[in-house]
Design a protein around this nucleic acid. Sequence first.
DNA 1: GTGGCACCTGCGAATGGGTCGCAGGAGTCT
DNA 2: AGACTCCTGCGACCCATTCGCAGGTGCCAC
Lengths: 167, 167
Amino acid sequence: MTVAYPGPAVVVEDVAAAVEVMRSQGLRVSASRRVVLTVLFAAPGPVPAEQIADGLGGRFPLSDLGSVYRNLETLERVGLVRHLHLGHGPGLYAVAERDNQEYLVCEHCHAVRAVSPTDLDAVRGRLRDDFGFTASFGHFPIVGRCADCRDAPPRDHDHGHEHGRHA
Amino acid sequence: MTVAYPGPAVVVEDVAAAVEVMRSQGLRVSASRRVVLTVLFAAPGPVPAEQIADGLGGRFPLSDLGSVYRNLETLERVGLVRHLHLGHGPGLYAVAERDNQEYLVCEHCHAVRAVSPTDLDAVRGRLRDDFGFTASFGHFPIVGRCADCRDAPPRDHDHGHEHGRHA
DNA sequence: GTGGCACCTGCGAATGGGTCGCAGGAGTCT
DNA sequence: AGACTCCTGCGACCCATTCGCAGGTGCCAC
């Protein structure tokens, strides 16, 4: 990880278009990079690296987790991929264009709600007005209680093994 | 970690008072638990477990990191301690009463700004109004750009090895 | 003040997520 | 087709944290 210069998100809507971007950036188009992109496009939301290495349930076998991480980093550097951290648990990766969203995560039921950045502008505005701080909830989401769990008793407030369903 | 039932924060202002709470909870007051508390009270802000095991620069030598983790968990369960995650990097621990704060972390210069929960009520209010979501920024802070770094170019957006100074 | 028993400690090994170095393999350009 | 890199797979490694176990110790009762 540690993406030195995460480029601005590049908009592509399929693997072929992503491959074009890769070529235009001087990156080689290898089989494993195609698989990484294929899995990311096929996934319903952000997925952990290990799931990418599994090749979407064995349909696209990929051998090496280390290479997956390197490819994710490379693809993130050119802006095709992004990653985020939902609480604890492994980092999650997604196609940048398809996932330029910000997240609200319920610490109780682990539900994940994706919202478009503009929906959070009012919140961001308050933070800027009150603290001169410009928040971004893409990489580290907002954690708290969703409406359903507002009054639920505390349970445990650590580990994020379960990746809540997306709303 | 994985605190099963993090009790409500217990308010104590020194090690002696914390020891009282421990006794009242049926916990044994061991030397190493005293050291953990002493270090936490002496620290200027949240500190990683390893720094606790170091015993505040060797002044209070503690042998075993594993025991430190176990004690932190135990003390957190009774509400004397809490922990949080500032970006990447190890978890940070603090005396619950002294640190019932919420945090804003700059992803660029890693500065950490502690604010009292009430100062974020307006922000929380917007989130509740707009999404029915009750946010808490104590365990996972708000990440973004502080005023100084608002217009700085992107640099890297991962790893939090440096624990920014507190504001 | 001395047992005794459960709890706590220290140690070491293990786990999970992620990175790195290296040697060989495969895109790409000509 | 050749050559030059980059990319891959493998294994070792790192860090933060957890776990199992055997032995030590705080605390309560007598």
